[in-house]
Structures are given as structure tokens and as C-alpha cells.
Write a protein that binds this DNA or RNA. Sequence first.
DNA 1: CTTTAGCACTCAGGAAGTTAGAGTGCTAAG
DNA 2: CTTAGCACTCTAACTTCCTGAGTGCTAAAG
Lengths: 358, 358
Amino acid sequence: MELSERKRRILKAIVEQYISTAEPVGSKAIAADPEMNLSSATIRNEMADLTAMGLLEQPHTSAGRIPSPQGYRIYVNELMNEHRLSLEETQEINRALKQKMSQLDSLLADAGKVVSELTSYPAYALTTQVGRRTVQRYDLIQVDGETVIAVLLLEDGTACNRVMKFPGGIEKDLVQRMGTVFNAGFTNLTAQEIDSAMIRAAERTLGDEIGAAAALASFTISTLESGGSKKVLSGVSNLLTLPEYQDVNKAHKLMDFLAEGKELEQLEMPQGQEGVQILIGPENVAEELKDSGVVLATYPLGNNMQGVIGVVGPTRMDYAKVAAYLSYIAGGMQQISQGTSPPQLPELRRMDDQDESR
Amino acid sequence: MELSERKRRILKAIVEQYISTAEPVGSKAIAADPEMNLSSATIRNEMADLTAMGLLEQPHTSAGRIPSPQGYRIYVNELMNEHRLSLEETQEINRALKQKMSQLDSLLADAGKVVSELTSYPAYALTTQVGRRTVQRYDLIQVDGETVIAVLLLEDGTACNRVMKFPGGIEKDLVQRMGTVFNAGFTNLTAQEIDSAMIRAAERTLGDEIGAAAALASFTISTLESGGSKKVLSGVSNLLTLPEYQDVNKAHKLMDFLAEGKELEQLEMPQGQEGVQILIGPENVAEELKDSGVVLATYPLGNNMQGVIGVVGPTRMDYAKVAAYLSYIAGGMQQISQGTSPPQLPELRRMDDQDESR
DNA sequence: CTTTAGCACTCAGGAAGTTAGAGTGCTAAG
DNA sequence: CTTAGCACTCTAACTTCCTGAGTGCTAAAG
């Protein structure tokens, strides 16, 4: 069946009403809208059609309708008007971000917090690495007879360090030669490419009896493997205010899943694409999210890295608004991460607010 | 009124039963215990006394009794037998810890996770700094014409680094002299002791026109200020399994409070003391914790730092067990943080388990 | 003087029954 | 094609009732 213009208008109205009330919506409520010059009976007929088409669902016979995941999908793809951030909104975001963002380290955590505060949904932020992760250069600083600080400059421009102690003492000469050997042999390699044969070879070359080379190699591998990727989750407790999670069990399951952090890895999957992604209900891979909605934005972050920032909420979520927030903040993050330290958050695509879809 | 031996035994039995069932306990249940050679009527009389003394409470007339906070306090101080970790328990902890603990960085997070998993209560872990935090030594690594990595070795033996970019280029000579100046003038100072006059003086001495000294100084200050102190919270969602938090609102409030992290700062307060602290209900400073129980353990951590690891749960909490876990793990943390890298967790004070207070 | 059995009383919480109202689908008229 | 009207359905909320756990008191027994 074709989706007539009228059906589309009705579907849109239903979705929006349901988004704001979380209650099944009936024909009367829609007919009450002055925009909709139709009687409830007509609407009822249309609603019956929409239900037959699988875009609406009926919890039970004598209840109103709620949108099915497909219904949401159509809404998101075709019906939803983009939520334009109002001046107040951009200002609020800017204020919140500026206040918090001091350094790139805590950027993620802060962004997540801001998002979850603004949307009142749990938010997560993470970085993933897109390309190879390798050491570009080793520097070994000898602090005293027993202590060496290893500094690894990675390909993406970040540096990692580790203080290594050698209780039996370590010779200056060994440290120096080790630097040479590692810079020659262990740079531009991924963690997988470093194998134990190489390490043993280095040990032999160095005449290393105290495991210094092994320690350095293991530090290298763990650094490369751990991948600068970080995860942050905030605002999970917001779930408890939502009517759909009044059931403690449901809430518990979802929270556990989120805290576990596994989904984060799954959620970064729609890779390559940039911009905002919306995943509705069963569109999610993870079982636990099958009746939740996820909105996420990805953005390029420095070298080889990609940032993801996302929001998890009930299927009934104000996708338009959340998507707008996310894309705005993702844009800001990108700029901050590329620019120099002082965060100058621009007034990105701010517009006058015309329709307030709350 | 004196607390007779019999009253003490009854109080103990009530607390323990309540701990495990979360239901008010009646006289019959206590009388059923073969250890207790008394009829329910006698117990009732004693219970009436204990209630009069403020050690028990009655939710309503026809319900059993639950311990009041004072009742718990007496239990914890005088009646509770120390929970000795069984061989299985220590082994389980050791396994969990060993598996996770790779580096001191993630030590906190992992310890918190382990604790919350073992106890099924939310756990937090944090470090606070006790004494001065200063830089012991600066090393500047020049990577290329524009890039310098600054490595700060702190007094507590940890190192921090930052990659600094100078788009206009920076001279080798300046980098070298800057190292000298900073090592001479900026070591052994706390963040407060570094003031802008010093920085300007350094800039003059160096003839620094590109803000290199300022950048390094600001990195220093932020490093010192941020204080290695970190906070980690895990297992909050465990709350939702507990009968006392079936009420979504209660759970929400507490979770919010915990996520906020403010209490962490308050909870570290019983400073100076080491070992395990137990805070019952109203004994907590924070309003939100007035009907929760908190068990926390502090331990010295490297130089100038103190670690705190704690558990938050309902007032009815198995204090004996939780305290045992915490003190064991705190001991382990201390050892790991002092020892060298490979975590060799000893079988600390392991004993045969005689009484299983679950 | 302490312990215990017995008994009347209280009260929360669950089960069953009832009601109100929101919403539907269908039919027939405009 | 739209709409008014109506009979029907079904949930959610509110009663009411009942059960059982637990108490406090009294009086008898040790």
C-alpha cells in the first residue's frame, strides 16, 4: 500500500505524541490537533491501515497505537524535521563545554557528561583507532642507576611513558644501545608484527641479561594493543526517570550491559561513515538494545583515530533533538581536537528555532 | 539498661538474619535457632527491651523487628565475628586480581570492579594525595623542528608526558637551555609555589619569544594540580538487585549521588587512619547516604599518595564479609603498588573458614 | 522471679471482584 | 469519502475481603 500524504501526517503526529508522552496514542488525541482537519473516525481508519502496514502497533485491543520500529524508521528517514538548535541551546552547550573542556584527556569524559546532561539519556563517548598503531620513536631517559623512563612517540602524535626499575642496576651503555636497537628494529611495527623471536634477537645483540629489552618490548606491545581507545559512560542513572524503565529488571539489564561496555565496541561498527547514525530497536546488533534506540555521531580525531559519541535511550526518543545535539557536539570535538589547546568552540550552524519538537 | 549476654546473643541473631533476608525478623524465627534455648515468648520480651533501648525498630505493629543503626553499630563493634576469608575466597580474589592487574594505571579501576563483583555492591576506588606533589626532574625530547616531548618525573616516581607543538619552529638550543632552567628552577615546587613572576623570569632568561616556557610551566602546573588523584566507580547497577532499592526513586537518588562522585571526596575524610572503616546509616556525612552503609579501606600508596577503596550498600550489609574483602584487597593493592611490576599477590592472612556468615 | 503457653488483637499484602473510561471496529447516513 | 453513533473490549485503578505473621499481655508453671 502506498503511504498517502495524509497517512504520513498521521504517522508523524503519532510518533511525536508518543515520543513526548510515552503512552499509546488514540485517534481522538490526533483528531484534536487543529492542523488535522479530520474526525477521529477517519483517523481510526487510517490508523488501522498503518497498523496493517506494520508501522504501528497495538499493545492491546482497547489501547491506542504506538509506533513500531519500522514506523520510527520512516519517521526518522522521511518525516522528522531536523531539529535546529535554538540560540539558547547552542549557548547552553557552549557554556557547558567551555566550562569543562580543559584538556584533550578529559575531553571525552566531559563531552559524554554534557551530552547526557543535555539529553537526559545515558551517553557514551569513545575513541577507536582506525589505522595501524605503531611506535615512531623511542627515547630512553636514564634517571639513576636503576631507573629508566621509556618514552614512546606514537605515529598518531601522542606519547606514552613508563618508569622502569631494574633493582640490580642497569648500565648507561646498555640503555643507550637499547635505544638504538629499538629505534632501528621496533619502530613502524604494529603489536602483531613484534614477535618473541625479534625480542630474543634484540636481547642477544644487546647482551642483555636483566630483561631490559623484554620489559621495553612488553611495554611497547601493551601500549600498541591497548590502543589509545578510551571509553566513557555517563548519565546511566537517567534511565530510571523514564517510564519505560520503571521496571527495575529492565533497567538493570540495560545498565549492566552499558556498564559492561561491550556494546560500545559494537556500536562503533558503522564505521567509515561520518555524521549521525540512528539505530532503532531491533536494528541494533546487541540483544540488550533490541528495544532501545541509539543515536551516535562519529568524527575524525587526530591521526588514525576516530571519535564516537552516542546516546542510548528508549525506542521512543526525541531522535531529532538528540541527533542535533550530537552532531553539534561532535563537530565541536573535532575542532577542539584539531585546533590548539584553548578550546574555541564556534557557533556552529546555529539557526533560529522554528519548530519546537520536544 | 544493661545489655545482658542473652540480649546480645539475640541482637546478633536478629542482625544476621536480617542481613541475609532483608525482612523484618520475628520472635519465632529466632527461637527456632537450636542454639537459642528459649521460647518465642521470652524472646519477645527481650525484643521489647531491645526496642525500648533503641537497638531495634519495628516497621509497624504486626511486623518483626529490624536493627536500628545503633543496633548495627553495636553489632559491628562488639558482636560480629571477623569474617575469615576461606581458601576459596582468597583464591577467587587472587584469580580475579591477577587476571586484571596489568599496570598501576588501571589498577584502581580493576580493583573497584573486582570488589563490586565479589560483593555485589557498588564499589569505588580512588587515590588522594597526602603530601606535596612536585616535579623531580624534567626531560625534554626534541622530536623535530617543531615538536618537543616534555617528560616530567614526579616525586612519587611516576612520569607524565606531553607532546608540545610549536608551529613556528623551536630551536634546539632553546630546548636544551629550557631543560636546564626548569631543572634548576622548577623542581621540588608544588603547583602553588610556581607563580607567574617565576615564569616570566624564566622567559627572560631564555629569551623565549614563542611561549615555550609558558607552555611547559602550564603543563607542569596542571600536572601537579590534577594530582594523580583518580576516581573510579563500578557496579552501581548492582543496587537494582537489592530489595531495598526496588523503589526506582531511591535507587535513582543514590546512583546519581554516587555517579556525581562528590561523596567520594567526603568519604576519604576519615584520613590518617588506615585500615577499615565502617559507616552505618546516619553516621554518614552525606545526606544521600543516611540510610546506606559504607565500608572503606585506606592504604598507603607509593609516595605521597593514599588509596581508598570502598563499598556502598544498604544499611543491611554483610559488614563482616565486606570488611574482610576490602582489607584483603587493600593489602594487595598496597603490595602491588610498592612492589615491582609483576603483581605477585600473596596469600594474605588466609584462614580456614569456620563460620559462614552469608 | 523467670520462663512459657495461650489468646486476643493488629496490620500489611495478596486475591478477587467491581467499575470507569479510553479506545476500537463497524455500520449507516451525510 | 467522511463522519456520527454505538456496541464491544480491555486495562488500570479502586474496593473489599481474607489470610497469616507477629505482637503484647496474662496467667500458669518451673
